[in-house]
Amino acid sequence: MKTLDLLHRWIGGLVGLVLAVLGISGALLVHKDAWILLPHTSDAQVQATGAIAGTVERIMADPEVQPDMIMFATRDFGLNRLSFANGSGAYTSQAGDIVARWDSQWQRPELWLFDLHHHLFAGDAGETVGGIAALAGLFFIVSGILLWWRTRKTFEFRLLPKRLSRPAILRHHRDLGIVAAPLLFVALLTGAILIFRPVAALILGPSAPALIEASLKAPEPLSVAMAAQHDWHSMLSTARARFPEAEIRSLSLSRNGDGLIALRMKKSEEWLPNGRTTLWFAADSGRLIAVRDASRLPGTVKVYNMLYPLHAAKVGGLSYRVAMTIAGLALGLLGAFTSWSFWFGRRRLKASGIGIKLQGSPLPRVD
């Protein structure tokens, strides 16, 4: 137990602040649709094929300023989001009127907050650091439960420490951690699986990463150029005929010269907010090239597609969003107080003279 205690303390001191950042940013992102204060955010979702086609035609009318992607409004957020190749973007009403524009993510809090949570402002390297922190968090949950068991009779739940002292912080850390452990386990495990293939293989089976990649792979690229104009109504009508009950979620133009236009849809049984049901059209003629029906994907891939909605609280309604908000805030408190007590708590005790007074008589263990 002494070795486990030592590992728990030192690893917590090293990655606690990263976990605090991930927790607080995640808690804020869960409610992103509610705190984006722009006109038309509360508009009812429009899914009529003709109406969406008209909006797409309006947005795509000028080939010089076509967005790379249109993300269509949801039931909870009434704006379309446009993404451009240079990193800029815009929100439009569902009629296609521009509501807000930005030249970089720093002009929109929801965008830089998303980058902070997913990449720590450091791209792929930041994502890897976040994944390592998630694995460390899983270790904290398991080791914390084992360490808490010794002092379970002194359990006392508090939202905040009784005082800003190291013993009080350690006790608060122990008891808050045990309460939040189930929710934190879900958040950290799903995050780790989404980032690291070996974790996906461990949880979903050795063949899972290859199966997921093959099942979600786009068709082979086409050697065709993007046409200046398309019959968007025909494409959307083709998609609606294939999947009449599915939501139209996003439209992506040819990426990296692959010669494909991708239209994503969400069937009712899918948890992913943008679905995995996808139709690909040729970028020159608009002819249908391939179709992926998410309901026909292998079981392992369906389970994998559930992980992000579980992680980001995109399923389960308000009650689950509140639960994951609590998990994020708890992770923020645990990480922040852990870092403070590890790096500054001992120093503060010594500076106050308590360290000298208690020489030869160490503080009682509270964790």
Rank of each mutant, 00 (worst) to 15 (best):
A53H: 06
F114K: 10
Q105M: 12
D68P: 00
Q47K: 09
R296C: 00
M1S: 09
H31F: 15
H230S: 09
L334W: 05
K217H: 07
V142P: 06
Q45P: 00
A181E: 06
E156K: 07
F157V: 06
G257W: 01
Q107D: 12
A168T: 04
A44R: 14
L4V: 14
D367Y: 14
T3I: 10
K32R: 14
L288P: 07
A85I: 07
F72R: 01
G16F: 10
G50R: 12
A336D: 01
L188C: 12
L37G: 00
I11E: 01
K267A: 12
G137P: 10
T128N: 05
R365Y: 00
W102C: 08
M60H: 04
S319W: 15
L211P: 00
R75P: 00
V322M: 12
A100T: 02
W106R: 03
A200W: 01
L318C: 00
H117F: 11
F140P: 02
H8A: 09
W280E: 09
A294S: 15
H31Y: 13
D258S: 07
R292V: 06
L310S: 05
G316S: 04
Y308E: 11
L113H: 00
L329E: 04
A34W: 07
F139N: 01
G355Y: 12
R348I: 12
